[in-house]
Protein backbone atom coordinates (compact mmCIF):
# COMPACT_ATOMS: atom_id res chain seq x y z
CA UNK A 1 0.00 0.00 0.00
CA UNK A 2 1.05 3.59 -0.63
CA UNK A 3 0.21 5.89 2.23
CA UNK A 4 0.70 9.32 3.73
CA UNK A 5 3.65 11.37 2.58
CA UNK A 6 4.76 8.83 -0.02
CA UNK A 7 1.38 9.23 -1.73
CA UNK A 8 1.69 13.01 -1.66
CA UNK A 9 5.14 12.70 -3.28
CA UNK A 10 3.69 10.56 -6.03
CA UNK A 11 0.76 12.95 -6.58
CA UNK A 12 3.09 15.95 -6.81
CA UNK A 13 5.70 14.36 -9.06
CA UNK A 14 3.07 12.90 -11.37
CA UNK A 15 1.43 16.32 -11.53
CA UNK A 16 4.67 17.99 -12.60
CA UNK A 17 5.36 15.25 -15.11
CA UNK A 18 1.99 15.76 -16.78
CA UNK A 19 2.53 19.51 -16.94
CA UNK A 20 5.99 19.10 -18.49
CA UNK A 21 4.72 16.71 -21.16
CA UNK A 22 2.10 19.15 -22.45
CA UNK A 23 4.01 22.39 -21.91
CA UNK A 24 6.22 22.02 -24.99
CA UNK A 25 3.91 20.27 -27.39
CA UNK A 26 3.06 21.73 -30.82
CA UNK A 27 -0.62 22.49 -31.49
CA UNK A 28 -0.56 19.97 -34.34
CA UNK A 29 -0.42 17.18 -31.74
CA UNK A 30 -2.97 18.46 -29.25
CA UNK A 31 -5.78 16.24 -30.45
CA UNK A 32 -3.71 13.04 -30.70
CA UNK A 33 -2.15 13.80 -27.33
CA UNK A 34 -5.51 14.40 -25.71
CA UNK A 35 -6.61 11.12 -27.22
CA UNK A 36 -3.40 9.49 -25.98
CA UNK A 37 -3.87 10.75 -22.44
CA UNK A 38 -7.48 9.56 -22.70
CA UNK A 39 -6.07 6.11 -23.44
CA UNK A 40 -3.62 6.31 -20.52
CA UNK A 41 -6.36 6.81 -17.93
CA UNK A 42 -7.81 3.59 -19.31
CA UNK A 43 -5.47 2.07 -16.69
CA UNK A 44 -8.59 2.30 -14.55
CA UNK A 45 -9.21 -1.14 -16.07
CA UNK A 46 -6.82 -2.80 -13.59
CA UNK A 47 -8.70 -1.16 -10.72
CA UNK A 48 -12.01 -2.30 -12.16
CA UNK A 49 -10.68 -5.85 -12.55
CA UNK A 50 -9.56 -5.78 -8.93
CA UNK A 51 -12.88 -4.42 -7.67
CA UNK A 52 -14.81 -7.11 -9.55
CA UNK A 53 -12.29 -9.79 -8.58
CA UNK A 54 -12.85 -9.27 -4.87
CA UNK A 55 -16.62 -8.70 -5.14
CA UNK A 56 -18.64 -10.76 -2.65
CA UNK A 57 -22.30 -9.84 -3.12
CA UNK A 58 -24.36 -9.82 -6.30
CA UNK A 59 -24.67 -6.02 -6.12
CA UNK A 60 -20.90 -5.69 -6.00
CA UNK A 61 -20.54 -8.10 -8.89
CA UNK A 62 -23.02 -6.16 -11.03
CA UNK A 63 -21.35 -2.82 -10.29
CA UNK A 64 -17.89 -4.33 -10.71
CA UNK A 65 -18.92 -5.79 -14.06
CA UNK A 66 -20.10 -2.37 -15.23
CA UNK A 67 -16.75 -0.95 -14.09
CA UNK A 68 -14.79 -3.51 -16.14
CA UNK A 69 -17.07 -3.02 -19.15
CA UNK A 70 -16.61 0.77 -19.13
CA UNK A 71 -12.89 0.65 -18.35
CA UNK A 72 -12.18 -1.82 -21.16
CA UNK A 73 -14.05 0.50 -23.52
CA UNK A 74 -11.91 3.42 -22.40
CA UNK A 75 -8.62 1.53 -22.79
CA UNK A 76 -9.31 -0.23 -26.09
CA UNK A 77 -11.17 2.67 -27.71
CA UNK A 78 -8.54 5.15 -26.60
CA UNK A 79 -5.79 3.04 -28.12
CA UNK A 80 -7.54 2.41 -31.44
CA UNK A 81 -8.41 6.03 -32.19
CA UNK A 82 -5.04 7.39 -31.07
CA UNK A 83 -3.19 4.84 -33.16
CA UNK A 84 -5.36 5.65 -36.18
CA UNK A 85 -4.67 9.37 -35.86
CA UNK A 86 -0.93 9.07 -35.35
CA UNK A 87 -0.62 6.59 -38.20
CA UNK A 88 -1.37 9.43 -40.61
CA UNK A 89 1.34 11.84 -39.55
CA UNK A 90 4.21 11.88 -41.96
CA UNK A 91 6.83 14.26 -43.29
CA UNK A 92 7.10 15.41 -46.90
CA UNK A 93 10.60 13.91 -47.03
CA UNK A 94 9.04 10.54 -47.65
CA UNK A 95 7.77 9.98 -51.20
CA UNK A 96 4.98 7.43 -50.49
CA UNK A 97 2.33 10.05 -49.91
CA UNK A 98 -0.41 8.88 -52.19
CA UNK A 99 -0.62 5.31 -50.90
CA UNK A 100 -2.33 6.40 -47.70
CA UNK A 101 -5.44 7.54 -49.53
CA UNK A 102 -6.44 4.01 -50.41
CA UNK A 103 -5.99 2.77 -46.85
CA UNK A 104 -9.27 4.11 -45.46
CA UNK A 105 -12.26 1.79 -45.47
Amino acid sequence: MIEGLAAIYIFLLAGFTGYEIIARVPVILHTPLMSGSNFVHGIVLVGAMYALGIAETTTEQVIGFIAVLLAAGNAVGGYVVTERMLEMFKSSKRPDLKTSEAAGD
Binding site: I2, G18, Y19, I22, S37, V40, V46, G47
Partner: peptide, 25 residues
Protein backbone atom coordinates in the same frame (compact mmCIF):
# COMPACT_ATOMS: atom_id res chain seq x y z
CA UNK B 1 -7.88 9.09 -6.56
CA UNK B 2 -9.34 5.60 -6.97
CA UNK B 3 -5.77 4.38 -7.51
CA UNK B 4 -5.00 5.64 -4.01
CA UNK B 5 -8.12 3.90 -2.70
CA UNK B 6 -6.95 0.59 -4.16
CA UNK B 7 -3.26 1.21 -3.36
CA UNK B 8 -2.39 0.92 -7.05
CA UNK B 9 0.67 2.96 -8.07
CA UNK B 10 0.07 2.65 -11.82
CA UNK B 11 -3.41 4.14 -11.49
CA UNK B 12 -2.19 6.98 -9.27
CA UNK B 13 0.68 7.98 -11.54
CA UNK B 14 -1.18 7.58 -14.83
CA UNK B 15 -4.30 9.28 -13.47
CA UNK B 16 -2.54 12.29 -12.02
CA UNK B 17 -0.27 12.71 -15.07
CA UNK B 18 -3.39 12.86 -17.25
CA UNK B 19 -5.13 15.10 -14.73
CA UNK B 20 -2.40 17.74 -14.82
CA UNK B 21 -1.59 17.42 -18.53
CA UNK B 22 -5.31 17.64 -19.29
CA UNK B 23 -5.77 20.72 -17.09
CA UNK B 24 -2.98 22.53 -18.91
CA UNK B 25 -4.35 21.47 -22.29
Amino acid sequence: FEGYVLGNAAMIIAGIVVGSAGSLL
